[in-house]
Write a protein that binds this DNA or RNA. Structure first.
Length: 278
DNA sequence: AAACAGGCCTAAA
DNA sequence: TTTAGGCCTGTT
């Protein structure tokens, strides 16, 4: 991968896998939206950006400094996903899944935002998850004017910690509201230190996250995979249960994919969901 | 109209 | 250790 700054954008060339649609719509994030011209605008890590593909290059708004400071890591650009697909093609099914999902990258997202978003995701569908998250940001985040539009950052846990369930009522997120507040307070008062968890073990992270009400195996694994950078975390939801039942059976163990199990999970999930859509 | 949607919690075997 | 029912809300 090479990059160079020009005219308010950074051009990425000589890339391995990087499909914007698959990366942003494979279910790992909720705040990147496709525009009429095929580009994507989103807010992440406290700033707004637009990404577009032109030929073999990807263009990201901002300076080279911003790219080095934020986006290089956010888009996991130090990892070669074409190589990973090869490693994960351990059987015929995984060969098909990785080919179908070629272009997916696992994002290294903000820890609190990821935890909070996946608390909201439980027993919910993607359009409604996105609506609730956007309302949360519009109500409590910082306004950003970008490219002629108005956007909002994801509110820090500290800002939510002092709110009440009544304050969250406009979100219409139902029984998840107290879960959000519990988690926000735990982060704000240091009971849950996600930065510390990131440098600890998977087991410690699981135990700490599951101490909070409303966080079980699935939500904890999503937070660990998508924000603590542990690519061996393996979230299992209803779609993954189907995929596993159809292709592996009862005594499936994600450890067959080693420290890339979480990446394997994302290929399986994306492939499975494509079959369940009309 | 009833069932379902990217779970989690509690109670009960 | 596993299983059933309930939970807010919006959509089909």
């Amino acid at each position: 991968m090479q990059y160079s700054e020009r005219g308010g954008e950074v051009e990425l060339s000589d890339l391995d896998d990087f499909d914007l649609k698959k990366t942003f719509e494979c279910g790992q994030c909720f705040r990147w939206n496709e525009q009429d011209d095929g580009s994507y605008i989103g807010v992440a890590m406290g700033r707004a950006a637009r990404l577009r593909r032109e030929g073999d290059s990807i263009f990201i708004t901002g300076t080279a400094g911003e790219f080095e400071e934020v986006w290089y890591d956010y888009f996991d650009l130090s990892r070669n996903y074409a190589d990973i697909r090869g490693i994960l093609s351990t059987d015929n099914y995984m060969l098909r899944a990785t080919q179908f999902g070629a272009g997916i990258r696992i994002l290294n997202q903000d820890r609190w935002e990821t935890l909070c978003s996946f608390i909201i995701s439980q027993c919910n569908n993607i359009p409604r998850i996105k609506t609730i998250v956007e309302k949360l940001c519009a109500l409590f985040g910082e306004r950003i004017d970008f490219d002629g539009g108005t956007y909002y950052t994801f509110p820090p846990a500290e800002r939510l910690a002092s709110r009440s369930e009544a304050d969250l009522a406009p979100l219409r997120c139902g029984y998840r509201a107290p879960y959000i507040l519990d988690a926000a307070r735990a982060v704000a008062d240091g009971r849950l230190d996600m930065d510390a968890l990131a440098s600890g073990s998977y087991g410690d992270a699981m135990r700490s996250l599951k101490m909070l009400s409303g966080i079980g195996d699935k939500v904890a694994n999503c937070a660990i995979l998508f924000s603590l950078r542990m690519k061996d975390a393996f979230p299992v939801d209803v779609h993954m249960k189907r995929a596993i039942a159809e292709h592996y059976g009862k005594d499936f163990d994600p450890r067959i994919f080693g420290d890339l199990a979480g990446v394997a999970q994302q290929y399986m999930f994306y492939y499975q969901r494509s079959k369940n859509r009309p």
